[in-house]
Amino acid sequence: MGRIRTAIGLMSGTSMDGIDVALVKTDGEGVVERGPAVGVAYDPAFRKRLQAALETAKTIARREERPGDLADVERDLTLRHAAAIASFLDANGLTKADVDVIGFHGQTVLHRPEQGLTVQLGDGGLLAGESGIDVVYDMRANDMAHGGQGAPLIPVYHAALARNLPADCAFPVVFVNIGGISNLTYIGPDGAIVAFDSGPGNTLIDQWVEAQAGIPFDQGGMIASEGRAVAGLAARYLDHPFFTAPERRSLDRNDFSPPAGGEATLEDGARTLAHVTAAAILKSAGHLPERPKTYVVCGGGRLNQVIMGDLAGLASDRGAKVIPAEAAGLDGDSLEAEAWAYLAVRALDGLPLTFPGTTGVRAPVSGGVVAKAERGAVSDA
């Protein structure tokens, strides 16, 4: 067993709605003690700047480039993360001396695995200096340098959690994260890990209701619950070659686009896209080694009752049950941030973050860059 460290994980996902902060005590292997967690929302003006940054980032050809105002956005994003840490420590009666490391995801603004290119805004050195705590960041790049897709990185944490699931969670178990993009982690009865992105998550729904009604997301699936699924529109998404391609690949939020304004009413569009989110998960699960028996659902999408209802119905038809993370004793809001804390500890110990069965990397590899708080120095993990 390795040294047990106290780590804070920071996650700002593809939904770009804020920062999740979570504390974990772990050896980066089988010991996981989950601590407090909090979500810190971005103000609407900054969220708009992040959305604009996605467009600017399309011109990036090399990871270190920061065209337009991206350098300013990166600095402001990092300072918001530093403020979130300071507030979190204060709220939980902790000091920087109580924390060994921060796992900093940053904000993905470009992800093109076919070009070996992934860009997460976030200045690890600045965050280390502001927080006074060592930071591990840029954890996707080394995987890509060794032939991987750069995503998903969380499966190794799912595997650690799977060791302590309730007895009624039959294996194979699949952890489903429904964020902006959905992804699956399969844990076989023998502990085998297979993981990949499964399709659109909340992003299409968010984009649809924002464009049609000026609402940032469909809270609880309330809008979708008033509509009906438009079969032809759903089929257009589910017939996408992504689902039938022999090789799994990681998705960028631009791989799927929301419907045009005239293709459905507000409610029917939200209902159709909720169905697409659920059906995409089951369709992608067809690429797994065995048919799952339990789906544990994490991420914001688990709060959309229409997605969950469709997912439960489709899974039941295949002999599986669907439960939200909370029914498995987990926190579906903080799980990704917890994973980033866990990954930071693994990175410090040189343990693999990714595997051939998760990202397609040629062999298990570690990764991440360490920014030391006391010197602002930066080195490979």
Rank of each mutant, 00 (worst) to 15 (best):
A312D: 04
H111W: 10
G179A: 00
P189T: 03
P352K: 00
V176C: 12
T265N: 02
N254S: 14
V31Y: 14
A320E: 02
G39T: 12
N164M: 11
L348Q: 13
N142H: 15
P155C: 11
A341H: 12
V297A: 06
R112P: 01
G103K: 01
V38F: 06
A347D: 05
S87L: 13
Q107V: 03
F242Y: 15
P166A: 01
S316W: 03
L273F: 00
G180M: 01
D168P: 00
G286H: 05
L288A: 01
M222C: 12
G122N: 09
A245K: 10
L238K: 10
V296G: 11
R112Q: 15
H111C: 10
T265S: 15
A234D: 02
I323E: 12
V322C: 12
R66A: 13
G122S: 00
G191R: 07
R271M: 07
C298A: 15
G201D: 13
L184Q: 02
R140W: 10
R318P: 03
A320F: 10
P356L: 07
R62M: 08
I323M: 15
A22F: 08
L330N: 11
A327V: 05
K293W: 04
L10M: 03
I205C: 06
L94S: 09
H240G: 03
I4Y: 06
V297N: 03
A260R: 14
V365N: 06
T59K: 15
V365P: 03
A151V: 11
S12E: 06
G350Q: 05
R249Q: 13
A234M: 14
G13Y: 05
D69R: 09
S12M: 01
G367M: 08
A229K: 14
G214A: 13
H287L: 06
T95L: 09
K96C: 09
L54Y: 11
A344P: 11
D380T: 14
A37N: 12
S366R: 04
R140L: 02
I181M: 12
H240Q: 01
R318F: 04
L126A: 07
A363Y: 12
R346P: 06
V370I: 14
T244L: 07
N304Y: 01
L50C: 15
S334N: 03
I215H: 02
A145S: 12
G313Q: 06
L314A: 12
A37R: 09
A71R: 13
T244I: 12
G125H: 00
I133E: 00
A325S: 13
A211Y: 04
H275N: 11
L288T: 00
D90N: 11
L353I: 05
Q115R: 15
A279W: 02
G313A: 08
V173N: 09
G148N: 09
I102T: 11
G191I: 09
K293A: 12
R3I: 13
M11D: 00
I60R: 06
G269P: 00
F175N: 07
K96M: 07
G350F: 07
G18M: 00
A337L: 00
G332S: 03
A41M: 07
C298T: 15
T59G: 11
